[in-house]
Amino acid sequence: MPEVLEAPLVVEFPFTRSLGPVQSAFLTGLRERVVLGVRTGDGRILVPPVEYDPVTAEEIRDLVEVAPTGTVTTWAWNHAPRRGQPLDTPFAWALVRLDGADTALLHALDAPGPDAVRTGMRVRVRWAGERTGAVTDIACFEPYDGDPAQPSGHTGDFENPVTGIVAPARLDYTYSPGRAQTDYLHALSDRRMVGERCPSCRKVYVPPRGACPTCGVATSEQVDVGPRGTVTTFCIVNIKARNLDIEVPYVYAHIALDGADLALHGRIGGIPYDQVRMGLRVEPVWTEGARHPDHYRPTGEPDADYETYKELL
C-alpha cells in the first residue's frame, strides 16, 4: 500500500456577532472598567449577565453594577497555555464570584503556581491596557487581599455602546484523504486517471471515494479511465475568482472520461468559450509540477452521440 498522503488544513474565519441589550451593556462596561450583572425575577444577580433567566426563561433587563473583586469558587492549574488563551504563561482557570454577584464568571487567574491558588481565595480584575468591549477586556484575575471594592452604582447607560463583536476562530487540521483518494492522487502523479469499480453494480467512479453511493459497498478494483472524455454539460464563468489567474469568460465543464460512469469537472481550454458544446471530445493538458490536469482541450474527434453520455448527465 502506498504511503498515506496528508496535508495541513487551516479552517479560519472571523465570526461577526451582534449583541442583545444586556450583552451590549456588559461588554461596553468592561471597556469602561465597570462590571455589570443582571437581576433575575427572584432577586439573584447573574454575572456574566444574560438576556433571559436561565431557570424561568423570563426576559431580564435590570442591570446592577458589581465589584471588580471576588472569590474563587473552583479552579484548575493550566501549566501549558494553548493558543488563544488569556495568558501565555502558566495560569489557573478560575470561576470567580464577584462581590455582589450570585454566580461565577470564567476567566484566567495569574498566580505564581498551583500552591498559590485555592478555592475561596480573594481576587480582583486586572484590566487589559487596550479595551474594545469584549470579555478579553478583563486581562485576567490576580490575587487580592484588600477589602471588597465598592461599586459606584452604574446603571449601564454608556456613550457609544458596543453593538457587536468580531470573534476570530482558527482551527488547524492534518487532512488525509483516505485510502481510495490516496490511490487516485498517487496515480495522478504518473499522469494516470484511476477510478474504482463497484463490485455490485459495476459502475466505475472517478475520482473514487471508496464507496459506491448507490449500493453502499466498498469499491476496490482499480480501473484506468480516460485520458479522453466527453463534455456532458458545462457553464460559462464570467466572474473572476480571487487568487485564480484565469481570464474570463472561460468554460467549466462536466467531463465523462472514457470508461467512467460518473463525470468529473474541469476547465476547457484551446477553444473559444462560445464554441464549447455538449458532446465535445476532450483530453487533459498536464503542466509541469502540477498534480491535476491544468485543463482539458478538444481532441478533434467528431462529437459524441448524445445516447452515449445521456446517463452521465
Binding site: 461588554l27 479552579w75 488563544g84 470579555v135 470573534a167
Partner: peptide, 21 residues
C-alpha cells in the same frame, strides 16, 4: 461565543474545574 469561547478554555480545562469542585 460572547463570554467564553474568546478565552479558548479547552475541554480538559473545563472538566478540571468540575473535578476540583
Amino acid at each position: 461565543p460572547y463570554y467564553v469561547a474568546p478565552l479558548w478554555p479547552d475541554s480538559v480545562a473545563l472538566a478540571a474545574l468540575q473535578a476540583q469542585a
